[in-house]
Design a protein around this nucleic acid. Sequence first.
RNA 1: GGGCGAGUGGCGGAACUGGUAUACGCGACGGACUUAAAAUCCGUUGGCUGAAUAAGCCUUGAGGGUUCGAGUCCCUCCUUGCCCACCA
Length: 821
Amino acid sequence: MKRYNPKELEPKWQKSWEDSKIYQATEDKTKPKRYVLEYFPYPSGAAMHVGHVRNYTIGDAIARYNRMRGHNVLYPMGWDAFGLPAENYAIKTGVSPKEAVAKNVTHFKKQLMQMGFSYDWSREINSTDPEYYKWTQWFFLLLHKRGLAYQKESLQWWCPHDKTVLANEQVENGKCWRCGHEVEKKALEQWFFKITDYADRLAKDLDDVNWSESIKTMQRNWIGKSNGMVFTSPVKNTDLLIQTFSAHFEAFRADTFVVIAPDHPFLPELVKGTKTEKEVLDFADKMTKKRDSEGYVDEEDVEGIFTGRYTEDPVGNGELPIWIASYALSHYGTGIVKCSVHDERDFRFAKKYNIKLKPVLFPSDKKEAEKVKNLEICYTDMQNGVLTEPKEFNGKIAGQVREEIVKYLEDEQLATAQTSYKIRDWLISRQRYWGAPIPIIHCTKDGAVPVPEDQLPVELPDLKSFEPSGDGRSPLANVPEFVDTTCPKCGGKAERETDTMDGFACSSWYFLRFADPNNDKKAFDKDKAEFWLPVDDYIGGAEHAVMHLLYARFWTKVMFDEGLISFEEPFTTLRNHGMILAPDGQKMSKSKGNTIEPDGLISQGYGADSIRLMELFIGPWNQSVNWSIEGVGGVFRFLQRVWTLVQEYLETGKNGVKESIELTKLTHQTIYKVSKDLENLGFNTAIASLMEATNELYKVKAKDDFAAKNWKDTLKTLLQLLAPFAPHITEELWEQMGEKDSIHTSKWPVHDEKYLKTDKSTIVVQINGKVRANLEMTAGSGEDEVLTKAKADSNVKTYIENKKIAKTIYIKDKLINLVVK
RNA sequence: GGGCGAGUGGCGGAACUGGUAUACGCGACGGACUUAAAAUCCGUUGGCUGAAUAAGCCUUGAGGGUUCGAGUCCCUCCUUGCCCACCA
């Protein structure tokens, strides 16, 4: 008997699939389309581990299942290959990012290939290919044309020793990661995309997509829409006016002080001429640095300093002191906030610095209200709280008069309503080499001029040294042939922009490129894009929950507005898989040295099919689990049992005449279970059903030794049901059973309801909810019949003797419960 | 601090709209085959009491509640994971 040897048969079938191109997708309109996509990976130097593999195994199972169900499946793969690691590696080793990426892609691709994923490799794309980033640049120009790209000065981390801009992750405890020198902030002119113009639509359209509530909530929080009011008031002893923001404006009569963000651009002007000017500015500077480097500052540690200025409150609360507070954000509202006792942080801040407080909002509970009055607790319930001021609203419930208060403040011209968003415009400038160059030419006469479309792509020149320029610009600034150019408008001498784009720009449209990957006239053909998109199943980890998904949605909406496509949301269904952790429960990472690569398992002889099965069987697809080496042996054993069963069947060469109804029923029940599980992505239970079916088949075999006529069909169906998970072994056995065409293009089996019915049922007898007996009954038995038999049961008898049956609950074919008193 | 999840045997986990908790797999134990081991195959396997594959009691993070019946629904609490974060 031939032994199951994945090492031999897996490469054989991988080659066969490649040659026959069975996974290539075409715009065949006779079948329903299905676009299955995983986020295109970053081909890092660290190899792919079993955590990554899970992502692709889930996608592949979905793709294969739908293909067999007669769908026209697009399942592509590509590379998101721009980014910092390749550039750092280049600085360290001198190996150009281009070479490093090419090497990594080759390795990654080999690893994916040996797992037998059904990608349409003819559509492979790479974001660092000029043919690709040409169109990324084209989209930059589109955004620019539509007024959505602009330049603004912005602060960046700067290492004065290395003379280079640092990314957030390169700052460690306020020090440069390379030289350990203290970092500072440097103002640079940078490019932004105006995503804030789309904030409302990005928030609203979340209602229409089939994503998990958790991701939707994350995006909504990130966009952070809130309605507030802006008050304008004079600053005492100056001729300045300030605009203060309040989101808790219902209780505006409680406002007793104002806080300004330490990094607010208005601050120097505000404190100019005060006695404490220098002291205050120093303090603000320190605070900004601390906040930037540490991120979160504990609520207990709120800090602040009095600016020395007061403002005359426009709504009659008198003179309000202006403080700098560590928790105030310059980009939220106006960056200057009106504060009161009715906010947790304001409350804590005021207590710490003994700032006057005055409650005007109270809970209905008298005792609690007393505590609020005595400033013992902070009360913030703007929904249910009862207002005492202003007089017009005395006794009203805040949540019910919100609109009226807005109207009141606006009618009296005391404030104006303002919607504020937490989301900020997307900073896309990177002072880096390894990214798509921003297609802009700076002319002293004409300013920032877009590169004409016919001159795209602005190609990255090959460099010898990847060290930064030293003046804050990217290494591209060192290359005169790149920088020096002529202005497209006036023809005069001009310089190219040396910033490159954030990698998220490349990934904001790649899903469209897959629809038409080789188009050299356009980013994509409209018809092709609309044939395949939107993406039906987008599979990925939660790490992209906000940034990537938001940016991609933003670009899609811009394209919609431009008329390039007629849909506004790129991803219909989002599927977030759980993480695979190392056996010790920690995240797998190269630095921790606890990664497990599929290569090792394959060379141990398990094969890709076992690994794939293990990835899915280990637990629910959307939950995190610890990888278990022992478990792989279990699924390998299962595959071996399937292999052996088919070999034994083939060797007996039997072809019986009598159908085994037992086999038929088992087959249809398994079809039903596996199909249902796959619809709900219950991969682990689908595989469990297949294991159960196989165990049953062994039992039937022990009885009839393959005598039944329908053994062949039964085995073939089993292979088909297993095919989306274990594509190699099933393809091999399918062929051994005499099939000419691939199992992966065969038609997914359909169950027949009539075989799901059983003629017998086990009925549980409960006395007061406790199980006391089991009854074997013919299916569909009536209550009386069951009750009579239950009463006759010897064990049941002992419980109902001398007692009254007060009530009987009967669930057909399942259970009878006797309530006994 | 905000948001979203999760707590079930020695372990990963299963359980449809409330209806036999522990499917499937791992591990462990016993047996068959073998000179032996590995591999394979066949059993057993939540805990306690019992000689028992008789019967009973207990058991889904803790405590209450609703119900004939709760892993599942409601309330209070505890633990833990992930994402984001000084967002008023």
